[in-house]
Write a protein that binds this DNA or RNA. Structure first.
Length: 657
DNA sequence: GAGTTTGAAACT
DNA sequence: CAGTTTCAAACTC
């Protein structure tokens, strides 16, 4: 509004002056004076570009650092939004209409430029700012690299707007209005700033776009979003920054992605629909999604109407963003995969979620007892003795614990205790079962040498159970014993310490011999479950959530779904992923990827290779290719194949629907 | 459901 | 790091 007036005035002014003074010199001067700004403008643009490339101090300060580093925690997101908002708001405030218009105008130009630079022309089609750069996002992961950058974002704009259109515009403006240009410039600059500094904004938007796409968003978004109703503001705000983090880290990205979309576009829809329709309202919270998931799945199942929400809310302890992410990712992935593949994989969800021993127990006990949980009496549920606590979940009604402090009410205590425990043992809450590839990286080759690809983190110490009962964590986790184990008389059906085959017939026979008919039968089931669990776990741990979950889903689908579900002992822990642990895994995964040359293939392969002892190289470094495994063990072959298939499909997951 | 067994977690 | 104690799950009856 102001700008037009100003421009008019300015334009007129020179004329009036010229009339008054008539002297050509004055005219020139006057004319020049207005021109100056115009000329200056181009410079400023460049300047701005430069400045923007390196996030301007003003803008930068707010979003910048925190976003990346804190990406894990949703909380982090909060700060970010503020910066962006103010920037955008400022223009809007001054000229709400103009600001919007300016953005709209800018974007198109930007799009064009972006398209050229970004290489994605189609993006331009999308009118929304978010869409433009983000459109690139489809790239999703790769986007990170591309988007990365601040530099990128800023320059394009400058070039685009300023060089071609921008200059022209300004030129035109000069003729018409000078001031308006400034306003635009400011607005543009603000936008630039926003985009550039956070870069993520683009990525974020990409994510948003992908997720947001009406078709997709709902399913995926739902879980995260729902809680959003409560957290909406946060999520929405956080999203952008989250996006950044997301870009950098797959897991978080997705989380962020999911969040993001919900926030912006579908938030309203999703929120309502999600929360309302899907019972699941996962608390945005932070962590302990596993439980939430578990709870949600089970409890929800038991009580359809029920509030997953309550469950999730109750149960999830905001321990770690990463973990939460995983969980969310799982849910989302599941939903997505379902949608995509149309295969009814209901069991999958359960299975996935059931990873924790508790769940197993629950299942074993019967679904009626679905909520059965810990029974702590002296630990106050603040020690790893407590399965709930160990799983990062709050205790709930079904728990028969006494003097329980593992409740939302005592969140502070829980977190503090958790921290303490983590300080003592950073991996205390990490999944107990780790896939061999990871182990290889971590421990060296030993682990890999052992029969199963997945291994217990620390190894068991069984002396009387022969690693044939759930007393044994390895057995419970469905993984074979490894060199790390100090067990005596190991007869682990999934793989002996000495390296015997995992689920070999021999092992089964031995088990059979040892166990009575009933027990045997139960065991076989158990084993199968454990087996599946183990796979899931092993895969899940290191791999990015998406890939893992995908694999799991595929496996589950293909593999005859065990009656109940695979309870992943490790899964519980997996839910707990520590940030550190997650980092490690990520790092490892990256390494593996580098080796293999494929991003997620390595992980998958490793997972697939679980069964093959032989597959593992003597060094234990790399696992043999999946096909070998398939040939080796008939049972799993299906799973492996599936896994392989899953890999390719993986990428598609995000965007679809 | 009570009691026993077991091995991890915690402590020293 | 090793030994001991504590703890709660797993198991048995």
């Amino acid at each position: 509004m102001d700008t037009p007036q100003k421009s008019i005035t300015q334009i007129e002014t020179p004329v009036s002056k010229s009339r008054v003074e008539d002297s050509p010199v004055f005219n020139y001067i006057n004319s020049l004076s207005p021109i100056r700004p115009v000329k200056s403008i181009p410079n400023p643009h460049q300047f701005s570009a430069l400045n923007f490339t390196s996030p301007p101090s003003v803008f930068t300060s707010p979003h910048l650092t925190s976003s990346h580093k804190e990406s894990r925690f949703f909380k982090t997101h909060h700060p970010s939004p503020d910066p962006t908002i103010p920037v955008q708001e400022s223009p809007d405030d001054s000229t709400s209409n103009e600001g919007a218009a300016a953005e709209a105008e800018v974007t198109p130009n930007f799009n064009i430029d972006a398209s050229t630079e970004m290489e994605q022309p189609h993006i331009a089609k999308e009118t929304n700012l978010d869409d433009l750069p983000l459109a690139v996002s489809p790239c999703g992961r790769e986007t990170t690299g591309d988007l990365s950058l601040v530099p990128y974002a800023s320059p394009p704009r400058e070039e685009n707007g300023e060089d071609d259109t921008g200059m022209e515009m300004y030129g035109n403006v000069q003729g018409k209005n000078e001031t308006p240009d400034w306003d635009r410039l400011i607005a543009d600059s603000s936008e630039f700033l926003i985009f550039s500094s956070p870069n993520d904004s683009e990525a974020f938007r990409c994510l948003m776009m992908q997720r947001a796409s009406p078709s997709q968003a709902p399913s995926v978004m739902m879980p995260t979003m729902q809680p959003g109703s409560i957290n909406e503001p946060e999520s929405s705000i956080a999203s952008p920054y989250g996006a950044v983090s997301v870009l950098h880290r797959g897991i978080r990205r997705r989380c962020l992605d999911f969040e993001m979309p919900g926030n912006k576009q579908t938030s309203s829809e999703n929120n309502t629909s999600a929360c309302g329709s899907s019972s699941r309202c996962v608390v945005p919270s932070i962590g302990l999604h596993l439980n939430a998931l578990l709870m949600s799945t089970k409890d929800c199942k038991t009580n359809n109407t029920t509030h997953d929400y309550s469950c999730s809310e109750k149960y999830q302890v905001g321990l770690q963003g990463s973990s939460s992410t995983l969980q969310e990712t799982l849910d989302q992935t599941e939903t997505e995969t379902r949608d995509l593949e149309d295969v009814p994989v209901e069991p999958t969800l359960e299975e996935l979620h059931l990873s924790s021993p508790k769940k197993k127990r629950q299942l074993e006990a019967g679904e009626g007892e679905s909520c059965k949980r810990c029974n702590c009496k002296k630990s106050k549920c603040l020690k790893l003795y407590c399965e709930c606590f160990a799983a990062g979940v709050y205790c709930i009604e079904p728990c028969s614990c006494i003097d329980c402090f593992n409740k939302p009410i005592h969140e502070d205590t829980v977190l503090a205790t958790r921290k303490q425990i983590e300080s003592r043992n950073p991996l205390a809450f990490a999944p107990k079962v780790i896939k061999s590839s990871d182990l290889v990286l971590e421990t060296g080759d030993d682990a890999s040498k052992t029969p199963a690809s997945a291994r217990h983190k620390r190894g068991c110490n069984c002396k009387k159970s022969n690693c044939l009962k759930k007393y044994c964590e390895c057995f419970q986790g469905g993984v074979g014993c490894s060199i790390n184990c100090r067990c005596e008389g190991c007869k682990n059906a999934f793989g002996r310490k000495d390296g015997s085959a995992i689920v070999d017939m021999e092992a089964e026979q031995e088990e059979e011999n040892e166990t009575s008919g009933k027990n045997r039968r139960a065991k076989t089931q158990e084993n199968s479950e454990v087996y599946l669990m183990r796979k899931e776990e092993s895969s899940a741990l290191p791999a990015t959530p998406m890939s893992v979950y995908r694999q799991q889903l595929v496996q589950l689908k293909n593999m005859m779904p065990p009656p109940q579900s695979v309870l992943g002992v490790g899964s519980s822990s997996s839910g707990m992923f520590n940030s550190q642990y997650t980092r490690k895994l990520e790092m490892k995964s990256l390494e593996t990827v580098a080796e293999d040359g494929a991003e997620e293939m390595p992980e998958i392969l490793s997972h697939s290779s679980i069964d093959n002892v032989n597959a593992v190289s003597p060094n234990g470094k790399r696992v043999s290719p999946p096909h070998l495994d398939s040939s080796s063990s008939g049972r799993r072959s299906g799973g492996r194949k599936l896994i392989l298939q899953s890999i390719p499909t993986f990428p598609s997951l995000t965007p679809q629907h």
